[in-house]
Amino acid sequence: MSVTALEKIAPDGAVTPTGTGAAVVSVRGLSKQFGAGPMVMAGLDLDIQHGSKVAIIGANGTGKSTLIRMLVRLVEPGGGDIRLLGEDIRRLGAPGLKRLRSRVGFVFQRHNLVTRLSALTNVVHGVQSRMSGPRSWTQLLAPREVRAEAMHCLERVGLADKAMARVDTLSGGQSQRVAVARMLMQRPELVIADEPDASLDPKSGEEVMATLAALASEQNATLIFVSHRMEHAIRFSERIVGLGGGRVALDQPSHMVSEAELMRFFHHD
């Protein structure tokens, strides 16, 4: 990988924590290869402190989505160590992994909602992080307090009036906000978002990002998001981590970089 101007500012692979608490994510020597393909990760190190907002950027194929998916083992890590919320994720059995995942809210690029069901039922599904059985499967059977909490989550994303609307009748931006409400229903300590603004028009994308960042601040939750929109990376994060060559190739406080500099990082990568 070629050297960029930003790399000169940031020590190679070094971490500049912007959060205040203990590390919620600690990655050491992470490597990953899919089949006989090239190494997606090659000894990546990364620490993320509690309460911080971190944007992960990088060109296509640099392993941004793979990295955040490996954090909760939606993709199995190759070599190296990952500690998430104090847990060594590689040592966790199925029940332990389920417990850990229940503490992490994950927002996907495609909202991944059940489109035939109402917005409210989709938000109620978020309670499955701490409750199981038929009463968590649909708003029809959900206990009163669960329905009330789900409605509150929809209110926080500005969609209370769409509670009973089927998701396939909502716009892309509204659907993504329902997905954010489902994530809130989880009461997560850490929020991970994989390009939540990618499939949305600029206005909806910005609304979703603003909602996510505001909610993370309100809850003092850590926010890690992947984005291809440099203006979002700068505006909604405190720290920008750029991936390249299977490692952290850029690590800067957001206020110290401009869009033009980030674009240069992309072009040199």
Partner: peptide, 23 residues
Amino acid sequence: GPREALSALGANKLGMIMSAVLP
């Protein structure tokens, strides 16, 4: 997608089937 989302939030397999697959 919905199955993966429910798995990512810690739902059990029966919950995933009843909430995402069957509907």
